[in-house]
Design a protein around this nucleic acid. Sequence first.
RNA 1: GUGAGUGUAGCUCAGUGGUAGAGUAUCGGUCUGUGGCACCGACUGUCGCGGGUUCGAAUCCCGUCACUCACCCCA
Length: 416
Amino acid sequence: MDKIKAPKGTKDIFTPDIEKWQYLEEKIKEVFNRFYFSEIRTPIFEHTELFSRGIGDETEVVSKEMYTFKDRKERSLTLRPENTASVVRAAIENKLFDEHFPLRYYYIGPMFRYERPQKGRQRQFHQFGVEVFNDPSAEVDAEVILVAYKLLIDLGINTINVEINSVGCKNCRPDYLKLLSEKAEMESEKLCSDCQRKTKTNPLRIFDCKNKGCIEVADNLPKITDNLCQDCNTHFVKLKESLNLFEVPFFVNTRLVRGLDYYTKTAFEITSEALGSQNAILGGGRYNDLIKQLGGNEISGIGFAAGMERVILHLDKIEKKNKLKVIIVYHSENEKTASLKIAKRCWDLGLNAFIDYGAGNMKKQFKKGDRIEADFAFVIGKDEVVDSMISIKNMKTREQEKIKNEDLEKWIKKNI
RNA sequence: GUGAGUGUAGCUCAGUGGUAGAGUAUCGGUCUGUGGCACCGACUGUCGCGGGUUCGAAUCCCGUCACUCACCCCA
């Protein structure tokens, strides 16, 4: 019989990695709460239409990477490939928007994309992120970038770069794309075949190409930041001022484009040199048209999403919280009952206690104590039972003391 | 979707055509009321799977699957 294995691109998470995940999750909650975000949890699957309408039919994510299936009533459902569309849907559906107050949410959870796995890329992966609705200011863009930056720095990750750009809006981007397409077409013979196609379909993507010829051409193509409308331009200037004010080091990368169609104005990414090929830890931007597009009012939005696996790759081993740990060691079956009673008292008092029921001799039990990294061993032998005592051995110093059985509570309170 | 590399003991790996190995982990003993060391001993395998070449294949060839990395794309 063949062993059943986890599906391609999925992973089990357990110790020692699970400690990193728990640490990261705590940090996320702490930092986001400080910035007045509250958590939102949305379903793991949604109607397929939410993503095709929200993210854009043409994007790779929607066109080739979604886990889409029919349920028993023939409804087309999709495992969420990202969370922004869901959060927007939830806000509209539950009428959460307040005309006079910005909404701030954060989320953590698994996402699903059908991709070939590699370092920092899985089919089931995890993202955390934030969304701010109903605040069109450039300052809040800077704040969102600050939160992301601060969280990473707080985690001790400092091999990072903050890159920002503006991708314009519906007023200026079409003109720019037309201009870009025309200019690229003039240099067409220097471009690779992929990029020749891109000049017609998605000229922005030429900036992504790593081909030498294409890079040369791209360097001389018009930059979006030189072709923004008045509104987008002042927004971008203000963003840069605010980032300086918040002391977030950044640089403008005019080649930065985002993969999801809903972005307008601000786009940003935080990358890390330590990651290898998938070097984006986190990416986001403003999406001022998305909410209307999904059936809501004309309400602005900005947010980012971070890849948790990619953050975890930066975390060194997390020391477990050194909560006091005890193993209860008994000499023979005769002392087992007395030992069980002591174990129960330990648990009731909140002490982290372990007892090995099939233990065998004491030597083995002490070895197990080493394995669970116990701080103390409570030793129960014939003498202890007769005298109503407990021998307590410090596993590190190997010193041993004897206390009265009835003083166990006292001892625990003192040492825990 | 494309390309490259790797699949041998629980783990890390050696073994390039001739009896499947080491380290480590585990278990037992020296040591029957006390663990970290030392020594001695034991267990563990469809050599990923299927086919081919050969007297003989872990080793060479073909196919296949899995994992890893890269392209692509993205977090």
